[in-house]
Write a protein that binds this DNA or RNA. Sequence first.
DNA 1: TGAAAAATGAACAGATCGGTACATTTTAAT
DNA 2: ATTAAAATGTACCGATCTGTTCATTTTTCA
Lengths: 193, 193
Amino acid sequence: MRPSKRDELVRKALEIFDRLGYQAAGMDTLVAETGISKTTMFKHFRTKDDLILAVLRYRDETFRNWFFKQLDESGLPPGEKLLHVFDLLEDWFGEPSFKGCMFIKASAEFQEKAHPAHVQSAEHKRLLRQAILELAGQTGVSDPELLTRQVMLLIEGAIVSAQMGTDRDPSAVAKKAARQLLECGMRPQSTVN
Amino acid sequence: MRPSKRDELVRKALEIFDRLGYQAAGMDTLVAETGISKTTMFKHFRTKDDLILAVLRYRDETFRNWFFKQLDESGLPPGEKLLHVFDLLEDWFGEPSFKGCMFIKASAEFQEKAHPAHVQSAEHKRLLRQAILELAGQTGVSDPELLTRQVMLLIEGAIVSAQMGTDRDPSAVAKKAARQLLECGMRPQSTVN
DNA sequence: TGAAAAATGAACAGATCGGTACATTTTAAT
DNA sequence: ATTAAAATGTACCGATCTGTTCATTTTTCA
C-alpha cells in the first residue's frame, strides 16, 4: 500500500496540531509523537505548511462527512433537522479531546487572509454554510439566506464559547435561539433594520 | 515620568501582537518595530509571557472602556441600547486595522485552559457578559440570563466571521437576530427544549 | 551642576526552528 | 531470491527563539 504512511502521518499530525497548535508543534515533536521519521515527512510534504494544508483538507473532509451524515441519518423533518445541527455540536463539544475548531484556530494563527491555511479555513466555512442553506431552504422560511447566516453566527459563537469555556452549554443556548429565529422566520413579517 | 516607557511598550506591543500574532512576533521584531531596546523590555517584563499578559490587560481595559462608554453616551432606551452593541461591532470591524479579537486569538494560540493568557481572555469575556447582563435586565425581558448568553454567542460569531471574512456584514445579521430574540423574549412564552 | 535612574547597543548563550544530506535498513513486488 | 522503492537514524545547516551580560549613554531631578 503506497500512500499508507502518508495518510497515517496526516491523521496523527491532525491530532497533534489540534492539541498543541500549528506553530507550537514543531517537526521534531511530530517525529517524536508519530514515530515517523523526519526524512519520510519531508519526502511526502516539501514544507511544514504543506503538511498543515493536507491536515486541514483532511479535517474538512472528515468533519463535513460526519456532520451531514449524522443530519441525514436523523431522518428529521427540515426544521428539526436544521436545529439538530446544535445537538451535533453538543456531541462534538462533549468529546474529551475537544480542542475547538481547527479552522478558527488556523485563521487565528495564520492571520493574513491570503495565507493558504486561512483561505482553506474560510473555504471550509463556506462549504458548511452552503449545506446549511440547503436545509434552511427546505424549512419554508421566508428568508433562508438570512436564517442561514444567523445560524452560522450561532454555530461559530457556540464553538468559540465552548473552546474558551465561557459558557457551560453554548449549544443548548444556540439551539433555543435558532428555534426562535426559525419560528419568527416562518411568518413573513417585517425585519426592520 | 517613570512608567512612560513601559506604557509605550505595552501600547506598541499590542498593535504588533494584534497584527502578527503572539508567537509569530518575536522579541527581536518588537525591538525593531518599537525602537525600544531589548534590555529595557526585559527590565519591565521578566518574560515575553508577562508582556503578553500586560498587553491583554491593557486591551481588556481600553476595549471595555470604549465599548460601554459608547453605549452609555448613545442615550438609547434599554432595548435599543442592547441592540446598539452590534452597531459598535460594525464600527470595530470597519477599522482598517481590524484583525479580530485579541482574546479569541490568544485562546487559540495558548490552548491550555490554565494558561494565564487563556484565563485572562476568558475573564475578559466574563466581564463583557456581565455588563451585557445588566443591559438585558433593564429591557423587561422574561429571561435576561438567556438573552445575554444568546447575545454573547451572536457577538462571538460575528467577530469570528468578520475575522475570517466568511460573512460580508456579520454585525447586521447578528443585530437582526438579536432584535428578534429580544422581541420574542418580551412575551413570556414557552421556550421548549 | 551633579548624582541616581533609566535606557541603550551589541554581543552572546543555549535551545529550538524548519529543512537537508547520506548511508543504511526495511518493505514490497516480481 | 532479486531488485526497486520506501522508510529510517543521525548528524548537520543556518536562522531564529527567549533571555542575559555589561559597558556606555541618556534622561531625570534635586
